[in-house]
Amino acid sequence: MRRAVCPGSFDPITNGHLDIIARASRLYDEVYVAVMINQSKKGLFEVEERIELIREVTSEFANVRVETHHGLLVDFCKQRDIPAIVKGLRAVSDFDYELQMAQMNNGLTGVETLFVPTNPTYSFLSSSLVKEVAAWGGDVSHLVPPQILDALNRRLRKD
């Protein structure tokens, strides 16, 4: 069985994330969405909320599983026999950072990283940008699934 993981904080998940997950789900038999926990960052959504929202918006993909992990991504991969990490690249600046991570991960355990160019529609998109625009009352409805927009509006009290 071919397995891959799409890691991230997903706070919140965006249409750009979903595009990468959907594309990975067509290439692999099983795709894990690993919601990584960063103790030094306070998220807008609790990890459990993110997992539930991601499960909701990825429910159409029968081969996608959503889990959380605290620690090294390569440990998550080893525990589940996952040989590949799938990452979306928006710009050259992403590549510089992601290449270093890919080389470190490969050096630690042999896990390969596959870079998928982001759909140009989402090349500027990040969770941080979505949160900032939404917090100021901007329209992010075209950047996130409807369930995520509802959750953002509830969290930011903009119903």
Rank of each mutant, 00 (worst) to 15 (best):
L143A: 12
V116L: 14
V31G: 08
V116M: 13
S9C: 07
F10P: 01
E52M: 00
V116D: 09
D94M: 04
A134T: 09
R50L: 00
V130N: 04
R157L: 12
T109R: 10
G138H: 10
R80Q: 15
V66N: 00
M101V: 06
I85F: 03
Q79A: 06
N119C: 12
P120L: 15
F45H: 02
L53T: 00
P120V: 13
V86E: 06
Q39P: 06
M36Y: 12
D96W: 02
T68P: 02
D75M: 11
L72Y: 04
E67S: 14
S127A: 13
V33Q: 00
L73N: 08
S126F: 04
D75I: 09
E132Q: 14
V66C: 03
I20H: 08
P83D: 06
H17S: 10
Y32N: 02
R90L: 05
K42P: 01
D159R: 13
V92Y: 10
A22I: 09
E46H: 13
A62N: 13
D139A: 09
R2G: 14
A135K: 12
V116K: 05
R26C: 13
V66T: 02
S9R: 07
T121F: 11
V5N: 02
L152M: 04
D139C: 11
K87E: 07
P145L: 13
G71N: 06
A4Y: 00
R2V: 12
V35E: 03
V144M: 04
E46D: 15
S141C: 07
G71K: 05
R26H: 15
Q39E: 11
V57K: 01
D159G: 12
A22C: 11
I20Y: 08
I51W: 00
L73E: 02
E132C: 13
R154T: 13
T58Q: 05
A135Q: 10
Y28I: 03
T68Q: 06
G88K: 03
V35Q: 05
